[in-house]
């Protein structure tokens, strides 16, 4: 369909322009807006490429949570912005970087255009085995059955990133609250917004999580939405982040991966291999793992955006 082709070409040009703008612009805030817009366009691209799972992740992560994170960083950097302007790399460096990037891009483009057609793919194999996993969404089957250990380790990557962020805390603030005190007016418009938005958002987040077993969606996307809603409530001054030394917080943070490991090893007894599921019990076990991973991911994502502990715990 030529109309669809026109849409695709337009999208491609737009996304390239946005990417160039994000790199070229010198003002941090402007660049961040460019990045958020880029994420949004990328969502559309994934939809056009018939990859709704990826589109959903991009919508949640690329635009939303990463956008908020970068905006927060840009706000903090604002006072040093004029100083950092003088630290621009030299023309030579920038030219070299541009030439190198262009060369890599060109090489990649040539290779991608010359890839075998039809492309060799594991998609039919993944779909063929779907029955024995009990889930309807092949992406979920890949994440929690065929490549379960990768997913477990990715969850640990998120936790490690959080540990890394926390490691930047001041020694005196260790164990404290990960955010400066929120001064937002509890009766202000933001509080009103959060009060209305958060409950509906939480329902949407749980819905996106729940349908993940059979349709595009899943724990990462759902967790991102829930984390965003939590941060919204905190930003509006209606709640506080917990201090990082809280035991319940630590327990929830590790519960997901630990439950995953335990269920994985249970497979040794019940189904002959680690990370295998016994016949007929695959779907409930996959759901159990996902449910256990949810609080871990929600907390870790929200705390990653919130940053290192900054305020002393109450004595």
């Amino acid at each position: 369909m030529t109309l669809a082709l026109a849409v695709d070409i337009g999208l491609t040009l737009l996304i390239l322009a946005m990417a160039a703008w994000t790199i070229a612009v010198r003002d941090t805030f402007a660049s961040v807006i460019g990045f958020v817009t880029y994420g949004l366009l990328l969502t559309l691209v994934w939809v056009r490429l018939a990859a709704p799972d990826v589109a959903l992740t991009e919508a949640a992560m690329g635009g939303g949570l990463t956008g908020a994170l970068l905006i927060g960083a840009a706000a903090r950097l604002r006072s040093t912005e004029s100083a950092s302007r003088t630290e621009r790399p030299s023309v030579l460096t920038r030219t070299l970087a541009a030439v190198l990037s262009a060369a890599v891009t060109a090489a990649l483009a040539i290779c991608v255009l010359n890839l075998p057609d039809p492309a060799p793919t594991l998609a039919p194999a993944a779909a063929a085995q779907l029955g024995s996993t009990g889930v309807g969404n092949p992406v979920t089957a890949v994440l929690l059955a065929y490549r379960a250990m990768d997913t477990l380790l990715e969850a640990i990557v998120v936790l490690l990133a959080l540990v890394g962020v926390w490691s930047l805390a001041h020694d005196r603030a260790w164990g404290g609250y990960p955010q400066l005190r929120s001064h937002a007016d509890p009766d202000g418009i933001l509080a009103y917004f959060a009060r209305v938005m958060a409950p509906v958002g939480i329902i949407v987040g749980i819905y996106i999580f729940w349908i993940g077993a059979d349709f595009p969606g899943g724990k990462f996307q759902g967790a991102t939405i829930l984390a965003a809603m939590w941060l919204l409530v905190i930003g509006a001054g209606l709640a506080h982040l917990p201090p990082v030394s809280q035991t319940w917080l630590r327990v929830l943070l590790v519960a997901g991966p630990l439950v995953f490991i335990v269920i994985g090893f249970a497979g040794l007894v019940t189904a002959e291999a680690v990370f295998a599921y016994p016949n007929g019990y695959a779907k409930p076990l996959i759901l159990a793992i996902e449910i256990a991973l949810m609080p871990t991911l929600v907390l870790a994502l929200a705390l990653l955006v919130a940053g290192a502990p900054q305020r002393m715990p109450p004595q």
Binding site: L190, F193, M197
Partner: peptide
């Protein structure tokens, strides 16, 4: 649409 309305207003 309600999300957009609410967010737009705020």
């Amino acid at each position: 649409w309600l999300f957009a309305l609410l967010a737009g207003a705020t």
